[in-house]
């Protein structure tokens, strides 16, 4: 038995002729200065660079993760002026002068941030790849001050996917930090 295959029109079009003209001129790198984790940092970055790639590839801060590059997973969550955002959905040049906090900036001389400690104590991760995003998201959540119950935490942490399925332990860790 065989299924009749229709030739996809889009493919046919693309195959026929390329009408897109010559390559566009390259965007020129410019200087962007942010405060990352309390330190002023100036990077030479082309305007089409996302904040996520600026952190990972230009500032060598690889603690912030890329799980989709499309705002669908939350792995890239950082704090900009205290608010949690998906750093893959914003361009670095839009954050001139902004205060950016990444996972590398949460601990201080006094030791780990209470959420970091809670994540270890509750084993709130397995592979650890979503973890920086989860923790930054939880810090943002606490700044928002709107989560009171476990149900709130589940709902308001749902922008951060954990494929390892550590959710119950993530809720435990965040609840512990909220109660403190």
């Amino acid at each position: 038995m065989s299924v009749k295959t229709l030739t996809p029109p889009a493919v046919q079009l693309a195959a026929k002729a390329d009408t897109r003209g010559p390559a566009r001129p390259m965007p020129k790198p410019g200087m962007v200065t942010f405060r990352i984790n309390g330190e002023s940092k100036t990077l030479s970055i082309a305007p089409w660079t996302t904040l996520l790639d600026a952190l990972r590839e230009y500032a060598n801060l690889t603690g912030t993760k890329k799980g989709c590059d499309h705002g669908q997973c939350g792995a890239c969550t950082v704090l900009v002026n205290g608010t949690r955002i998906n750093s893959c959905l914003t361009l670095a040049v839009m954050h001139d002068d902004h205060e950016i906090t990444t996972i590398e900036g949460l601990a201080n001389e006094g030791g780990l941030h209470p959420l970091q400690t809670a994540f270890i104590n509750h084993d709130a991760f397995q592979c650890g790849y979503c973890t920086p995003g989860q923790i930054c998201s939880a810090v943002g959540l606490m700044n928002e001050g709107q989560a009171k119950t476990e149900a709130d935490v589940r709902e308001l942490m749902s922008g951060n996917i954990c494929r390892c399925g550590a959710y119950p332990h993530i809720v435990d860790a965040v609840m512990e930090a909220i109660k403190k």
């Binding site: 801060l61 993760k65 996972i103 949460l106 994540f119 270890i120 084993d123 920086p132 923790i135």
Partner: peptide, 16 residues
């Protein structure tokens, strides 16, 4: 026992 790699994973030091 708590994960021995926990510290690296919650601080962003774990490299992939």
């Amino acid at each position: 026992v708590k994960r021995v790699d926990g510290y690296d994973k919650v601080t962003g030091k774990a490299k992939y």
